Measured scan of single mutants.
Amino acid sequence: MEVRTIKVFTTVDNINLHTQVVDMSMTYGQQFGPTYLDGADVTKIKPHNSHEGKTFYVLPNDDTLRVEAFEYYHTTDPSFLGRYMSALNHTKKWKYPQVNGLTSIKWADNNCYLATALLTLQQIELKFNPPALQDAYYRARAGEAANFCALILAYCNKTVGELGDVRETMSYLFQHANLDSCKRVLNVVCKTCGQQQTTLKGVEAVMYMGTLSYEQFKKGVQIPCTCGKQATKYLVQQESPFVMMSAPPAQYELKHGTFTCASEYTGNYQCGHYKHITSKETLYCIDGALLTKSSEYKGPITDVFYKENSYTTTIK
Rank of each mutant, 00 (worst) to 15 (best):
T232W: 11
Q123E: 10
K229A: 14
C271L: 15
K298N: 08
V304M: 07
Q20W: 07
E215M: 05
I105G: 00
V12R: 15
E68Q: 13
T120A: 06
G299N: 06
G257H: 06
Y265S: 08
I45A: 13
P34S: 13
T292N: 09
M24K: 15
Y137L: 13
Y84L: 03
T116A: 09
Q196H: 14
N100F: 06
A87I: 08
C225K: 02
Y72D: 06
T120F: 07
T312G: 10
G194A: 06
N187M: 11
K46L: 14
T302S: 11
F259L: 05
S240K: 04
F32R: 00
Y36N: 02
K46F: 12
P300I: 14
L153Q: 03
L212K: 07
A132G: 11
E296W: 12
A205W: 01
V243E: 07
C225E: 01
L163H: 15
I315V: 14
T282R: 12
A247C: 10
I124W: 04
A132D: 00
C182I: 07
S25T: 12
T27P: 13
V304K: 03
T11N: 04
E168R: 07
V243R: 05
L283M: 08
K229F: 07
K183L: 08
K183V: 09
K95F: 13
L200E: 14
Q195L: 12
I6V: 13
L133H: 00
K44F: 14
L118Y: 02
D109L: 02
E168S: 13
N268H: 10
H74Y: 03
R141F: 06
K201H: 13
Q222P: 14
T103A: 01
S213T: 02
G299I: 03
F80L: 02
M26D: 11
Q216F: 04
V160R: 02
E68S: 05
A69D: 06
A108G: 04
N16Y: 06
K7R: 15
Y28I: 04
T258W: 03
E264R: 03
L126A: 05
D41E: 06
N187T: 09
Q238R: 02
T198H: 15
W94P: 00
E68R: 10
G53R: 10
L114Q: 04
G29W: 06
Y208I: 08
T266C: 15
Y172A: 15
D287S: 07
G272I: 03
T198V: 09
L163D: 09
N14H: 07
K255V: 10
F128P: 01
H90L: 10
G53N: 13
S213W: 05
Y28Q: 01
D109Q: 15
V206T: 05
L151C: 01
A142M: 14
H176D: 01
K183T: 10
T27A: 09
V8G: 03
S310P: 12
A231L: 04
Q30G: 08
E296C: 14
I15K: 15
G143F: 01
F56A: 02
Q134W: 03
Y311E: 05
T198C: 10
R4F: 09
A117W: 01
V243D: 06
V58C: 11
M209L: 14
L88V: 06
L37N: 11
A87N: 10
Q222T: 12
L290A: 11
P131W: 04
Y311M: 08
R4W: 12
Y155F: 03
Y96I: 02
G272N: 05
T91H: 01
S171D: 00
K218F: 02
V189T: 13
K219F: 06
Y155D: 01
F259M: 05
Y137M: 14
N89T: 08
D135P: 00
N268W: 14
A146W: 05
Q196T: 09
N14C: 09
T103C: 07
P249F: 02
P300R: 15
D165N: 15
Y57L: 12
E162Q: 08
D165L: 06
M244D: 06
T226K: 14
E296K: 14
N14D: 07
N309Q: 14
L283W: 03
A250C: 06
E204F: 01
N178Q: 06
N309A: 13
D23I: 12
L59P: 08
Q98Y: 06
K191C: 05
V166G: 00
C190L: 02
S263W: 01
L118V: 07
N178K: 12
L114H: 04
E162T: 07
Q196I: 12
L81Y: 15
E281C: 02
N16W: 06
Y96N: 00
D180W: 05
F305C: 08
N178W: 02
H51G: 01
I301Y: 05
E168F: 00
D303E: 05
Y113A: 03
M209F: 13
L17D: 07
Q230K: 10
I124M: 06
V206W: 06
N100Y: 08
K127M: 08
S25N: 07
S279R: 00
M24L: 11
L17P: 03
S294L: 13
S86G: 10
H273Y: 06
S294R: 09
Y28W: 08
Q195R: 13
G101P: 03
F9K: 10
L283P: 07
I15P: 00
G53F: 13
K46H: 15
I315H: 15
K293P: 11
Q270Y: 10
A115C: 08
W107P: 15
A247Q: 13
G143D: 00
C190Q: 00
H90R: 13
Y36E: 00
E204P: 07
Y214E: 10
A154W: 03
M1L: 11
T314V: 10
K280A: 10
T292I: 10
H48K: 15
F217G: 06
E2M: 10
D77I: 01
E125H: 10
Y36C: 02
T76F: 09
S279M: 05
G220I: 01
H90I: 09
T282N: 09
G267P: 12
L81A: 06
F259P: 04
I15M: 10
S279Q: 07
N16I: 11
L179P: 00
P249N: 09
S86L: 12
N89D: 10
Y265A: 08
A40W: 11
T19A: 07
E204Y: 05
S25C: 15
H273D: 07
I301P: 08
C285M: 10
N268Y: 07
E308F: 14
P78R: 00
Y208T: 04
T19G: 15
V188L: 10
Y72A: 14
R139V: 04
G210R: 07
Y214S: 05
N61W: 13
Y252R: 06
D165M: 11
M26C: 14
T192M: 09
C285T: 07
Y274N: 03
L151Y: 01
L121T: 09
F217W: 02
T292W: 08
S171E: 09
A154Q: 07
A177T: 04
A136L: 01
M245V: 12
T192F: 12
Q237K: 09
T302C: 15
C225M: 02
T258F: 06
Y311I: 07
K7M: 15
H90S: 13
A177I: 09
G29C: 08
N89M: 15
Y311S: 04
Q122R: 01
T232A: 04
C190G: 02
Y214N: 05
C227W: 01
T266E: 15
L119Q: 05
K92N: 09
N49P: 13
L151P: 06
K229G: 13
V12Q: 11
T120E: 05
Y208G: 07
P78I: 11
L88Y: 13
I315S: 12
D135G: 05
V21Q: 06
K307Y: 11
T116W: 01
H74Q: 08
R141G: 06
M209K: 14
G101N: 07
T10C: 14
D109I: 00
V304A: 01
A108N: 07
G33D: 02
V185A: 04
V203C: 09
P224G: 09
I315T: 15
V22L: 08
P78G: 15
T232K: 09
E281A: 03
H90E: 07
F148M: 11
I124K: 04
T199F: 05
I277D: 00
K183G: 08
M170W: 01
A205F: 01
G164Q: 04
T211L: 12
L153M: 03
K218T: 07
M244V: 08
Q270V: 04
T19L: 13
L254G: 04
P130F: 00
Y214L: 14
F174M: 07
Q98V: 09
T19I: 12
I152Y: 03
L88R: 03
T278W: 00
E296P: 07
Q175K: 15
K255S: 07
K293N: 08
Q216A: 10
T226H: 10
G202H: 08
I105F: 01
K46S: 14
